[in-house]
Simulated scan of single mutants.
Amino acid sequence: MMSTTLQLSDPFGTVAYREVGQGEPLILIHGVGMQSAAWEPQIEVQSRTHRVIALDMPGHGGSDQLPDGAELPDYVAWLHSAVEGLKLRSVNLAGHSMGALISGGYTVMHPEKVTRVALLNGVYCRTAQARAAVEARAAEIREGAFDLDTPLNRWFGDSPTDRAARQQVSAWLSAVDPAGYAAAYSAFAKGDATYADGFADIACPLLALTGEDDPNSTPEMARAMAETARNGRTVVLQGHRHMVNLTDPQAVNAALRDWLQTPATRKETA
Rank of each mutant, 00 (worst) to 15 (best):
R51P: 02
S9A: 14
N153F: 08
G180S: 05
V108E: 03
W78R: 06
Q42K: 02
G62R: 01
V117S: 06
L79V: 09
A38K: 04
P160C: 10
R257V: 10
V83W: 00
D162H: 10
P73H: 05
E268M: 14
A226C: 11
A222G: 04
A77C: 00
I202C: 09
A37D: 12
P58V: 08
R266K: 15
Y181P: 01
D248K: 15
A255V: 02
A139R: 13
L6D: 10
S97M: 09
A16S: 15
E227V: 01
L256R: 09
D74Q: 13
L206Q: 02
F12M: 05
S217V: 05
G31P: 02
T265I: 14
Q35Y: 01
S170V: 03
M109E: 13
A182M: 01
D214W: 05
A54H: 04
P151Q: 14
P25N: 00
S217Q: 08
Y185C: 02
V91S: 03
S9G: 12
T150A: 15
I27P: 02
S159C: 08
C204S: 06
R154D: 12
A200S: 14
E268P: 09
L8S: 02
G191E: 09
A222V: 07
S9R: 15
V114I: 07
L72C: 08
A37V: 12
Q35G: 10
G104F: 02
Q238P: 00
Q35W: 04
M57D: 06
A226I: 08
G198S: 11
S63Y: 10
A70C: 03
K190V: 08
L260I: 12
A254V: 12
Y181A: 08
P25G: 04
V123Y: 00
G69M: 09
A164E: 15
G198N: 09
T234Y: 01
I102N: 00
R166N: 09
G33R: 10
N121I: 09
W259H: 13
A118F: 00
V117P: 11
L101K: 00
G61L: 10
T262I: 06
H240I: 10
A187G: 07
D149S: 15
D258I: 01
A165R: 08
Q46K: 07
C204F: 04
K87R: 09
M2C: 06
A38R: 06
L101E: 04
P215V: 05
E40I: 09
T115H: 13
K87C: 07
S3T: 14
L119Y: 00
T5K: 13
Q46N: 00
E143H: 12
L101D: 01
L173T: 06
V83S: 03
